[in-house]
Amino acid sequence: MADPRVVSIETVYRGRLFDVELATLEMDGGVVARRETIRHPGAVCMVPVLADGSLLLVTQYRYAAGRRLLELPAGTLEAGEAPEAAVARELQEEVGQVPGRVIPLGGFYVAPGYTSEYIHLFACLELQPSRLAGDEDEDIEVERRTLAEALAAVEAGEICDAKSVIGVLRWARMVESSNR
């Protein structure tokens, strides 16, 4: 099957964090389709692991969800910023730690049916205190959980955003495979 031919792309909204595009595509057989896409610069999500193996999580109010969520720390890439650089910056802003060691855990598209957002996932170890000022509109509280407690929070639906569920499960799988 051939990829659709892009007939036109129009940016219908420009925002601080993302843009919205309306594309017209010509599919196989001449069918014309329209696609709305949120264009996002990408993000990083960190699994901060303390020396005792426990994790640092954050709670913050998420307007779209209508409540505070328990999450792994994460942040949007700045223009031209490498994911590894964003990891150090975001971790210092959100939990006041800088990682001595960063392990890539892969990545994923958030929802490729309507957004280009790709999240790069990393485990952060050998943490040292170091604070950078966060965004003025962030309302973040830091929580410490053992890996077992974080897994239980995933199972109970207390951790319910995709990036955090994926991050906790990928880290647990890595720990499990290294203990074999």
Results as ranks from 00 to 15, higher is better:
32 V>K: 08
177 S>C: 03
11 T>V: 14
156 A>N: 04
121 L>M: 14
106 G>A: 10
67 R>D: 14
73 P>V: 04
49 V>P: 12
78 E>L: 11
64 A>R: 15
179 N>G: 12
64 A>M: 13
71 E>L: 08
115 T>N: 06
100 G>S: 04
78 E>R: 11
116 S>K: 10
15 G>I: 07
17 L>Q: 09
83 P>Y: 09
169 L>N: 08
65 A>S: 14
112 P>K: 06
9 I>G: 07
102 V>C: 02
157 G>N: 03
111 A>I: 12
162 A>G: 12
133 A>G: 09
180 R>V: 10
143 E>P: 04
37 T>V: 15
169 L>R: 09
40 H>S: 13
143 E>F: 13
127 L>K: 00
91 L>M: 14
124 C>Y: 03
34 R>M: 10
54 S>P: 15
175 V>I: 09
82 A>G: 00
168 V>G: 00
43 A>I: 02
22 L>H: 09
98 V>M: 01
26 E>H: 04
95 V>C: 08
1 M>Y: 09
42 G>R: 13
43 A>G: 10
97 Q>H: 08
61 Y>A: 15
174 M>D: 14
70 L>P: 03
99 P>Y: 04
72 L>Y: 04
25 L>E: 01
17 L>Y: 13
66 G>F: 09
176 E>Q: 06
6 V>L: 10
59 T>G: 11
75 G>I: 00
45 C>W: 08
60 Q>G: 12
121 L>T: 11
160 C>W: 07
121 L>V: 15
157 G>M: 05
107 G>C: 02
108 F>V: 06
23 A>V: 03
30 G>A: 06
121 L>R: 11
116 S>R: 12
48 P>G: 07
81 E>R: 01
133 A>F: 00
81 E>H: 02
1 M>T: 10
99 P>H: 05
14 R>G: 10
172 A>C: 05
176 E>L: 06
103 I>L: 08
180 R>Y: 05
56 L>K: 06
12 V>R: 05
14 R>P: 12
57 L>Q: 01
58 V>K: 04
1 M>S: 11
158 E>Y: 03
84 E>P: 06
30 G>E: 07
36 E>V: 14
162 A>T: 12
42 G>K: 13
36 E>K: 12
